[in-house]
Write a protein that binds this DNA or RNA. Structure first.
Lengths: 223, 223
DNA sequence: TTCATTCTTAAGATTATCTTAATCCTGACC
DNA sequence: GGTCAGGATTAAGATAATCTTAAGAATGAA
């Protein structure tokens, strides 16, 4: 069983070439040549997405943006555009790498390997920890069966914790990655959001403080 | 407190420039201008290493190779060499990214952000010595199967000892690396933490005193 | 624009943790 | 066994991290 990669590439020749190289390296590749809206089902169990930005129909950036609403799968962007602002935009939008065309397939394969040798824990389905359940694609949450309303930041904090149940997530990481990264917000701000979250979760509160480190969703001590 | 990045760059001007950009983005950067052998202590708690390959003394590749013998910290390589075989070699050797000089600092900053927004799971499995088990990512500890609550310093002391089972770790090292580095605390303080640790470990106590040196986790004599 | 929502900051209260100081204990050496 | 330096323990004050509340700033929709 090998890792699954989705390649979104309209240039059939280049696409076939990339597929060939990645297959030879032992990966299972699905080639999509149409720029259509991504749907969650297509990305279940996928370890990596390689996305060409220059698509005729739906732009690559739109695909990336939409994909990120429901999935954290690593995305490598391919593009002929080699200027910094394009790269910065794609990376800001949530891509993990940006390769400029033309490139040698050997480099692509190595970058894929480098990416996949690190464990990635993207989850596409609903996240559940104890009595709390999050649906990333709908951005809805329930606690003890009852729906609760979360703001963007609250949702993202809780999702970040629940993606790695039991693990301690540092305050710095949450501040840098959940709050607006361009303004450096204080850790007090994070406290406030967590405080609100806990109140909304009520008796289903699953957020533990890890003193001196950060927070954790779900029991860490008992295992 | 922010995430720590180590930048290994011999070109002082470029180094200073990168430091400035990363600092502005909220990271805590340590610049090393010498190509010396990396030692584990310098990379404790470091989230990312940025390594320039073209160093006069020890080559960047050697540093990378040696670093990988004891650490899984993400490494971004910078290099003036733009050919595929160099890139492939660096990626194969365990680097996570490869940026070709010259580049715009904005792109570097975004790549750093993209890298660090993914949780940095150092692949450290749980540490086990005798009946004591530590999980670094969860920050949890068990002794004889039962969970125990450790404070930050207690956890870090115990982890430092258990990372080198049977080896004596000096008191000075522990004071300098585990206790708050901004204040130089006395060795008496360390005693107190060790005392607390021992009490919490109870009959599973694995901390031995090495008279005149420091401490050791697990049997020294029998191994 | 205006309003409603969300995000952020400030300040004080609260608590866990760290450190110090004082005292007692232990092992090495004579 | 006595001595002494290094180590252990305890309790208590100092410090630092976190929580909460409330209010101001930003954002976005109508």
């Amino acid at each position: 069983m090998s890792e699954r990669i989705v390649l979104i590439e309209d240039d059939r020749e280049l696409g076939a070439q990339i597929v060939a190289h990645l297959s030879r390296a032992g990966y299972q590749v699905e080639l999509k040549t149409e720029g259509t809206f991504p749907i969650p089902a297509d990305f279940q169990g996928v370890s990596l997405v390689i996305l060409d930005l220059m698509l005729p129909g739906l732009g690559g950036m739109d695909i990336l943006k939409h994909l990120r609403t429901f999935s954290d799968v690593p995305v490598m962007v391919l593009s002929a555009r080699n200027n910094t602002s394009d790269k910065v935009r794609a990376l800001k939008m949530g891509s993990d790498d940006y390769m400029t065309k033309p490139f040698w397939p050997e480099e692509l394969v190595e970058r894929v390997r480098a990416r996949l040798r690190r464990p990635n824990l993207q989850k596409t389905g609903p996240l559940t920890v104890a009595g709390v359940c999050l649906d990333a694609s709908r951005r809805t949450a329930t606690a003890g069966g009852a729906g609760i309303e979360l703001t963007r930041v609250e949702f993202d904090i809780l999702a970040s914790l629940m993606r790695r149940p039991g693990e301690a997530v540092t305050r710095q990481w949450l501040v840098a990655n959940v709050l607006d990264p361009d303004k450096d917000s204080s850790e007090r701000t994070l406290d406030v959001h967590v405080s609100h979250l806990r109140r909304k979760l009520g008796k289903e509160n699953i957020i533990e403080t890890v003193w001196g480190i950060g927070y954790r969703a779900g029991k860490g001590g008992s295992r």
